[in-house]
Simulated scan of single mutants.
Amino acid sequence: MNDSETVLVENKNSSLPSTINNGKEMGVLDHLEELRWHVIRAVLAILVFTVVAFVAKDIVFGKIILGPSKINFLTYQFFCKMSSITCIDSLPFILQNRVMTGQFTMHIAASIAFGFICAFPYVFWEIWRFVAPALYNEERNTARGATFFVSLLFAIGVFFGYFLIAPLSINFLSNYQVDATILNEIDISSYVTTVAMLTLGCGLMFQLPIVVFFLSQVGIVTPELMKAYRKHSIIVILFISALITPPDVISQCLIGIPIWFLYEMSILISATIQKKRNLAVAKAEKLREAK
């Protein structure tokens, strides 16, 4: 898989695929060695992007991460162009650092988060390279393009969280006051943590269709099961939305609605997979009867 080619063969005594390396069946230690190298390459990719982000702090930290804290941010300008009612023309808070090592540690933490986001497609690709040889040819063909769709959904979720959920949440929290005498002086660690949670949380939440796809492939999830628990799923979605967003209804709904849409789309995906499985079973039975 990494140094030598890995192939799949059918075990004579079993219908399960067997992975061999250099003509010998791979044992547990061999698989662990393969996994180790995949993990090392994935971590190195994250480190490379982390170093790039750390060096380019004027762009990554000054413009991207701190972007939603500035009134000239793209989202705020868009809302102002839409209508005077939706216009966000003030963010009454300032960012400050109260710890001697605060800015340095936040610089490192933000760089790591940025590095993970950029390296996510490659990280998943390494995971897929480790898992794929254990699958049947038909299963691999069915899951072809998994890296592309996982990366696409992750990117959509990240952009959705960064350009919509994060700015609206920051606007709500910066304008909220229990008393006019209390000033919003936000610590830099709190700000970076909030933006990172919203952005990464949306990116991971948008992986729901992919998760359902693979669970449906192994028969754990069915469209009937998802339909039966549809009402329960709404409660779970709202609960998870409340965990990764600030305590305001608008942010929860903004992230909950697209997740609910993805849940409904996942039902269709699961139904399609079940239909293909039923057709395959029916075809196998006909061939067995013909013999």
Rank of each mutant, 00 (worst) to 15 (best):
L152T: 14
I156T: 08
P133W: 12
Q177D: 07
F124V: 04
A143K: 05
T181L: 11
L152Y: 06
W125A: 15
S174I: 01
S174D: 01
N171S: 12
E138Q: 07
Q177W: 10
S174N: 01
L168P: 12
A180T: 12
F148P: 00
A180P: 08
Y162G: 06
A166Q: 02
E138L: 06
R144T: 01
T181K: 12
Y191F: 04
A166C: 06
F148Y: 14
L135Q: 03
V123Q: 09
F154R: 11
T181Y: 10
G145I: 00
S174A: 00
N171V: 00
A166H: 02
L153W: 00
G157P: 03
L153E: 01
W128K: 09
E126A: 15
S174T: 05
R140A: 14
A180H: 09
L183M: 15
V150W: 10
E126C: 10
I188N: 01
T193Y: 11
W125M: 15
R140Y: 13
N137I: 07
T193S: 14
Y176C: 08
R140K: 13
W125E: 12
L135W: 04
E126M: 10
G157W: 00
T147P: 09
F149S: 04
T193M: 11
V123Y: 13
L164Q: 00
V178N: 10
T181Q: 10
Y191C: 05
N137L: 05
T181N: 12
E185N: 10
S169Y: 06
A143D: 03
T194Y: 02
L135P: 00
G161A: 02
W125K: 13
I182N: 03
Y136N: 04
Y191L: 03
F159L: 15
N171H: 08
V123S: 04
F172D: 03
E138S: 09
I186H: 01
A143H: 07
T193W: 11
V150F: 13
Q177S: 08
T142W: 13
S174V: 00
E138Y: 11
F124L: 06
L153A: 04
L183S: 12
L168M: 11
E185P: 12
V178D: 13
T142H: 14
A132V: 14
I165C: 02
W128M: 13
V150R: 09
I182V: 14
E185H: 13
P133I: 15
Y136V: 02
I127N: 15
I165F: 01
F163H: 06
F148T: 09
A166P: 15
I127P: 15
R140G: 10
F154E: 14
